[in-house]
Design a protein around this nucleic acid. Structure first.
Length: 136
RNA sequence: ACAGGCAGCCGGAUAGCUGCGUUGCGGAAGGGAAAAUCCGUCAAUGAGGAAAGUCCGGGCUUCAUGGAAACAGGACACCAGAUAACGUCUGGCUGGAGCAAUCCAAGGGAAAGUGCCACAGAAAAUUACCGCCGAAUUUUGUUCGGUAAGGUUGAAAAGGCGAGGUAAGAGCUCACCGCGGGGUUAGUAAUAACUCCGGCAAGGUAAACCCUGUUUGAAGCAAGACCAAAUUAGGAGGGCUUUGAUUUUUCAAAGUUACGGAGGCGUUUCCACCUCGCUCCAGAGGUAGGUCGCGAUGAGCAAAGCAGUGAUGUUUUGCCUAGAUGAAUAGCUAUCGUUUUCAGCCGUUGCAAAACGGCUUUGAAAAUACAGAACCCGGCUUACAGGCUGCCCGUAUCU
RNA sequence: GGAGAGUUGGCAGAGUGGUAAUGCAGCGGAUUGCUAAUCCGUCACGGUGAAUAAUCGUGCACAGGUUCGAGUCCUGUACUCUCCG
């Protein structure tokens, strides 16, 4: 039973690239950002990006599937509630061993959570009211 | 056996674990009912020969018009047929490539007209530089005429070759070949064969404009239809209604907003558009969302029979077979299959080195292609590891 | 998914079927005590060559075709960019 939903709107992707934090590994790139804090939903959301750079439609589909399979393994454990994540495929994603993708994703999730948690703490101390946070 | 040619087919398999879309069924909540929403140890089903490129042809939808046509522009072009249609396909003709099977060809018109043919060359299309010949003048020559055989240039220079003929030459004449026209025969036709005549017409380019014939409205599922939500508060104008003045026309005030107006296919004009319930200006908001279109009736798929040289048509029987929308149809593991290479073993030739062939339940390593439906069909083009089947041709050997 | 435009030296950018312009950058030389500016030359790739002389071949994204001859005309392929109210 998946405990996360899927990002679909272009607006959300753009917001992530503007305001989010990103971690790059050899096989994938992970972006993450907190959602609006006044919304009560708690599930993390995840999106997948495969650009035209990495190949034609067949290879892009394959990359997306492999990323989705890896995400299904690890997001239950590591993903934080009220956060949006985006996985971006790279040139190597279709070719490399699946174990490498799993290792990279695990590493990236741990690192990005480590970098995001203090940011939230800072925000909470500076701006107590969530209305000010959303106005930025 | 080797080397080719053509046509067609396949394009990984099995098991396990974890998952996805759609449809059906069941359940939950919800409601007058339905739809939408969520759930399921439920069931069924789930990519291709090219799904690709978007190069052609259709279906379908909208726009314009009473219905059409014309012009411009585009496309096509040997003949006959197939087809819903086509620039596709089939059969034939002609020309070219190959020993052959077979393959390739935008393959109408240059005698309707216009343009172009750089450089070189006398001359690139009614031409004459050198040369050859004759005459005049009178003498290393000059002028006039004839000639297109010879020379140089160039991609291309006015039928080819031989003989006659001539001052020199020339289809000027003749034979053969080529070319053009007529006739006969064969064929639906393109065309072919035979025969007679003409003396030869004035180069190339139409993938330059063009001519002739045939054909063509435009845009595309982000087409288009419906549903729901959100916002005016201003000015000008028009229409209608009521009231007042007035014989009517008309004028003023208040209210109201469709039955009115506008719309222009490539041809006229303009440059964001839509909504805010007439139009324009100003202003504000928006370019989000959902359902249908959308797949079980279709130029549908499979098999067999019949007609036809064939494309194809037709009859019978059976089948219903993806429907997503940040986009499902999978991810991983194991075993097997296929191919290649290396090692190993066996056989043949050989003194040997080595070469060739075979074996894989003897093993190892590597590879396992091109590539993902997006409204749907018919083609074309391009990409593609490897494998299978059938037929045909050539060479060598044997019978 | 659909519609359309383009590709020429290191960069920009012309080019009626007939010798691949021009500018910037780079390199060499002149000028100067030195530099800048200015002037002159060179500047796609490869071969022969002692040579930056000379000469030959290949070059306009790639591959075919038409033509005596294609950067240009026609067909196919690859890549890049733009638009979809």
């Amino acid at each position: 039973m998946p405990s996360f939903s899927v990002l679909k709107k272009r607006r959300d992707f753009v917001k992530l690239t503007k305001h989010g934090v990103s971690v790059a590994t050899s096989s994938l790139v992970l972006q993450a950002a907190p959602r609006d804090l006044n919304e009560p939903t708690s599930h993390p959301r995840i999106g997948y990006t495969t650009t035209k750079k990495i190949g034609k439609a067949h290879t892009r589909n394959r990359c997306r599937r492999r990323l989705r399979a890896a995400a299904a393994l690890f997001f239950d454990k590591y993903a934080l509630p009220n956060f949006d994540y985006v996985l971006i495929a790279r040139h190597t994603t279709a070719e490399v061993d699946f174990s490498v993708i799993c290792r990279d994703l695990q590493y990236a999730l741990q690192k990005i959570n480590h970098r995001l948690m203090p940011e939230i703490a800072d925000n909470a101390t500076k701006n107590n009211s969530p209305a000010d946070n959303s106005a930025d």
